[in-house]
Amino acid sequence: MKNRPSIYYLFQKFIDGSINKPEYDQLIQYFGEELYDQQLEDLIRQKLSEEPSAIDEEAMAKTIASVDLIIRQQISVKINKKKRIRQLYPFLAAAAMLVFGICSFFYWNKLDLVDKQTVNPKINDILPGTNQATITLEDGTLYKLNDKISGITAQGDHIRYADGSSIIVKTPSSLLSLTTPRGGTYQITLPDGTKVWLNADSKLDFPVRFANNSRSVSLKGEAYFEVTADAARPFVVQSSGQKVTVLGTHFNINAYDDELAVKTTLLEGSVRIDSKSEKSFQSLILYPGQQSIVTSDAISMEKVDPDDYIDWKNGKFVFSDESIASIMRKVARWYDVDVVFEGIDQNEKFWGSVSRFENVIKVLENLELTGGINFEIKGRTIFVKKLKS
Rank of each mutant, 00 (worst) to 15 (best):
Y335A: 01
E365M: 10
K62E: 09
S76V: 05
D42M: 15
A231M: 08
S270F: 12
M301Y: 11
S240R: 13
F317D: 02
G372K: 08
I15V: 14
F14L: 03
A96S: 11
V237K: 01
D308M: 00
A65N: 12
V114S: 15
S239L: 04
V339C: 04
L98V: 03
I344V: 07
Q187C: 14
D112A: 04
L367T: 03
L178A: 07
K386Q: 14
D125E: 10
S6G: 14
I253K: 04
E348N: 11
S166L: 11
D37L: 09
T370V: 11
G352D: 00
Y24N: 07
S202M: 11
N124Q: 10
L198E: 00
T228I: 13
I79H: 02
E51P: 01
F281W: 07
T370I: 12
D311F: 02
I344C: 02
M97G: 14
D321P: 04
T141H: 06
L137G: 08
D321G: 13
D25P: 05
D321N: 13
A154G: 02
E365R: 13
K349H: 13
N80S: 13
I71N: 01
I377W: 12
N109V: 10
T118M: 00
V119D: 14
S292H: 09
V331M: 08
D321I: 00
E376R: 14
S174N: 08
S6W: 06
L369Q: 15
T264K: 00
I126S: 04
V114I: 15
V246F: 06
V196E: 02
S165Y: 01
L204I: 05
L10V: 01
I64G: 02
V217H: 03
F91L: 03
T370P: 12
V363A: 05
P128D: 05
L27Q: 06
S216I: 15
D274A: 01
K78T: 09
K116A: 00
F106G: 04
T134R: 12
A255D: 08
K47I: 10
V354E: 06
A211V: 03
G221V: 00
L137Y: 03
I102F: 09
D258R: 10
A229I: 05
E278C: 08
K21H: 10
A162T: 09
T153V: 15
L260H: 10
E365D: 15
L113Q: 15
K330M: 01
K303L: 04
Y107H: 08
V337M: 10
D147E: 12
I310P: 13
E34S: 09
